[in-house]
Design a protein around this nucleic acid. Sequence first.
RNA 1: CGGGGCGUGGCUCAGCCUGGUUAGAGCGCCUGCUUCGGGAGCAGGAGGCCGGUGGUUCGAAUCCACUCGCCCCGACCA
Length: 480
Amino acid sequence: MEEKLIKEIPKKSDNLAQWYIEIIKRAELADYAPMKGMMVIRPSGYAIWENIQRLLDKKFKETGHTNAYFPLFIPESLLHKEAEHVKGFAPEVAWVAYGGSEKLQEKLAVRPTSESIICAMYSKWVHSWRDLPILINQWANVVRWEKVTRPFLRTTEFLWQEGHTVHANYEDAQKEALTILDIYKDFIEKELAIKVYTGEKSEREKFAGALHTYTVEALMPDGKALQAGTSHNLGQNFAKAFDIKFEDRNQSLKYAWQTSWGVSTRLIGASIMVHGDDEGLIIPPRVAPYQVVIVPIFKMKDRSTVIEEGEKLYNELKNSYRIIFDSREEYTPGWKFSDWEMRGVPLRIEIGPRDIKENSLILVRRDTRKKIKIKREAILDKTSLLLNEIQKELFLKSKKFTEENTRYPKDYEEMKELLKTKKGFVAVPWCNNEECELKVKEETKATIRFFPMEEEDVSGKKCVVCGKPAHRIAYFARSY
RNA sequence: CGGGGCGUGGCUCAGCCUGGUUAGAGCGCCUGCUUCGGGAGCAGGAGGCCGGUGGUUCGAAUCCACUCGCCCCGACCA
């Protein structure tokens, strides 16, 4: 039992990076495509994404957003309209220069994000204050020519949603950006069971062309932070560049205020890393492709009875849960146990002659791997109860880890020591000076991940690096 | 993009240093029988232009050059 069953995969605790890519391949979430930096999201991985889409999309709709779809290609001239934006994305844009054998008059960028093409359309659609707000989201793929790639965490092409909204004033845009930030936090904590911090990005780290960038940051088991989602108040930067103007109630012409925000398939990567263990994946019940697996156990003479009872059980549960009945005969029960554990199915039901005779069932939680014997008739209640408990406890575990690895050093020396030995987040008073930020980066490789949303009182406190009066609390960490 | 490592059946690898008939193992896969409450057993079987290109040689998985891909560690990013 204590012996490691998954062969050929390093222990998560020994080598997170290796474990991560091996488990993705073994659990068939994704596979490497024959092009550099690209992957195929296989059915098991895509099912998680579909669950993420379904749950998030519902929240977007509830808050007044609608979906649309904009083109994959962006003419070079459009991409260049907002100066900061181009500068930020230029190194990682893929270009189309030919249509068939004809050289194009103007190169087309494969969208690295869609601000420019969407803003070009918005400038046609926005005329009056009555046209506002525009609250559009799109589910799409984008391409960024990254140098270093990792499945789900950073690939050349990835799937995401990007919301793009237009408002009549700063306050409305700001409110939108923060509403979305809350949706992201709530979603990641409740559905993906990952503890996150929310905060604002520093000038250096903010989105190219944004006024404010807000972020949702999660801590991975190796102590590195992962940006799990971002929400930007774009101010009027894009409106000015793309000429998005409207006439307000007082008949004066105003530039519009905008936001954009997104989360990507990176969330799947975060979930894999945060919850998995040496036996494989642990997928939070709320997004698991299969929430329950039924494994029948039988000797040949019991076969038909057990299969029959198993099917009955399956039929009872199939309308309430995503469930699979693994009646394959070419594998032994023990093999199936390990296989489904590796694939991260949160709950397993074992049914065999003994259970049928005793009118009972064995349930096994993926996270604790504890066997629980229950009355046959309690199965609906118990399934619901256990899935909820697993979901909750996965989050509590993530929360505990994140909080235990968030530290408050007294001075710069201690901060450097913590970043070197313990990793995780360090929260320190900060002067808002980029020089100090760069110094920390140089000496510790850590960057400012965010300034927390809940403003802390820093009066009388001094910047941990330079000793000048502090403006805010900053959370530093090494990051993905 | 710099430093390091690795490419040999589906997977993990041996063979390479010191070139020489038919390229090996374990796992997986296929067939059959027996099994089945934590990765079952036996018997038989299929599957490989040794990442690619070029060179050296009578002869290359093995030596040389180039190239592509993947992983790890650093500089940039969801």
